[in-house]
């Protein structure tokens, strides 16, 4: 009887999930978009995520490896949306690389590219 009760208790405690729930974070929208080919330089960089995330690092680099400064500073608060004004970007292929920290402390590093003609 005690064994059955223990089993029942364990089942109740574990029942809400039968498989591991990943804290999947997706980049839902970005401006410029991934693989965008722009005829004029973008004025701003915008990232919209599926949930509030902690963005700890972001960089914008040209195809020559030059890093573009746009006054990013990591923030204490989490947010689903981030936006920065960009300086005038000369024609090049740019890579946006960013690092997120999930709630469980794991690092999520992602990147995408866009082109300015």
């Amino acid at each position: 009887m005690i064994k059955f009760r223990s089993f029942l208790l364990l089942s109740v405690l574990l029942s809400p999930l039968s498989t591991f729930a990943h804290s999947d974070v997706e980049l839902q929208k970005s401006i410029p978009a991934d693989n965008a080919m722009l005829m004029s330089a973008p004025k701003a960089l915008l990232l919209n995520f599926s949930n509030d995330v902690r963005l700890t690092a972001i960089s914008l680099t040209s195809e020559k490896g030059e890093s573009i400064d746009f006054s990013f500073a990591p923030a204490f608060k989490k947010s689903a949306s981030y936006q920065w004004k960009l300086p005038q970007l000369p024609p090049s292929t740019y890579t946006v690389s960013y690092v997120l920290m999930s709630d469980d402390g794991h690092k999520i590093a992602q990147d995408y590219t866009f082109m300015v003609h």
């Binding site: 364990l10 109740v12 405690l13 574990l14 999930l17 729930a21 709630d103 469980d104 402390g105 794991h106």
Partner: peptide, 15 residues
């Protein structure tokens, strides 16, 4: 407190 199990219900954390 951290890691893959931290998001799961109390029962998993106890395990």
């Amino acid at each position: 407190r951290i890691g893959h199990i931290s998001d799961l219900p109390f029962g998993y954390q106890a395990v």
